[in-house]
């Protein structure tokens, strides 16, 4: 696993220096990392002989009626050339009604997931209610800054007063940007995925329709992006919680199974 992206004060005792949990300062890392620079960085690391596990990745997120659907492929590659793992779960629950999909370097991305989950849980213990989805996105933006990671965040805000539940998706990057949209995609397959989403996205869609649109976006990207493939996972977020299933064939609901160990969803529930 690469050590890439670990700033000062991190990893020393298994805590995240930038996380409030560890009480550390926020190290200013490698500054702004856009999608393009992330790719460039990956290339440099490979040429330097550093093994760089990269999710390669296509992850999409879209809002539906009172729900969010996140879909991701399952391939992890080494420098985009060798499939290092064929059953990765790239979307994980981080909050009672929110999940994050990761793209970029796997180590820092997993670190980010754990830190965000810890921050959300600490917030809930301290304040007696879950973080709002907006506050979660802001926290994620602070944690991702300086990391070679471009995640997506999806969450559903519980009904408040007369307003029903509201669905939100955000795209984030290593510069710390947090941009909300109706549908988002990230990873090396994002252009192909966006091509599908431009046609299939419907803000009024049911969860089922949105799920198939998300699966179709990952399926198309898996066809043309060499770093994406090996089936997909589909995560549905409603005001009731987060559920994830896996499909061997993204377009075939018959190949659907319960997702395996998620590495921490139970921690949140």
């Amino acid at each position: 696993m690469t050590r890439h992206g670990l700033g000062p004060g991190r990893g020393q005792d298994g805590t995240d220096g930038r996380s409030q949990v560890a009480g550390g300062d926020r190290p200013r890392g490698s500054g702004e990392l856009t999608h393009d620079r992330l790719t460039a960085q990956r290339g440099r690391d490979v040429s330097a002989g550093t093994p760089e596990f990269d999710t390669g990745t296509t992850v999409v997120g879209l809002t539906a009626q009172d729900a969010v659907v996140l879909a991701a492929d399952r391939r992890m590659s080494l420098g985009g050339r060798f499939t290092a793992n064929k059953s990765v779960q790239k979307v994980e629950q981080v909050h009672p009604t929110a999940a994050m999909g990761i793209s970029g370097s796997v180590g820092p991305a997993q670190d980010l997931l754990r830190s965000l989950r810890a921050e959300a849980s600490l917030y809930e213990s301290r304040r007696g209610e879950p973080m709002s989805v907006g506050a979660l996105a802001q926290t994620a933006g602070g944690l991702v800054r300086g990391l070679p990671v471009t995640p997506l965040l999806g969450g559903v805000e519980a009904a408040q007063g007369e307003e029903g539940p509201s669905a939100h998706v955000y795209s984030l990057d290593g510069g710390g940007s947090v941009l909300e949209d109706e549908y988002v995609a990230t990873g090396s397959g994002l252009q192909v995925a966006y091509g599908v989403l431009e046609r299939r996205y419907d803000p009024e869609a049911s969860v089922e329709t949105a799920t198939e649109a998300a699966a179709a976006a990952v399926a198309a990207a898996s066809e043309r992006d060499t770093a994406s493939g090996n089936g997909c996972t589909l995560t549905t977020i409603t005001a009731e919680g987060v559920e994830t299933v896996a499909r061997e064939d993204p377009l075939d609901g018959g190949t659907q199974t319960e997702a395996g160990a998620t590495g921490g969803t139970e921690e949140v529930a």
Binding site: G14, T15, D16, A22, R114, S115, R117, E119, S121, G264
Partner: peptide, 18 residues
């Protein structure tokens, strides 16, 4: 209490277990 809260989250970060 706040010490305990931060400690519990550090344990989760470190070991991935409650």
């Amino acid at each position: 209490v706040d010490f305990a809260r931060r400690h519990a989250q550090r344990e989760r970060l470190r070991y991935g277990e409650a």
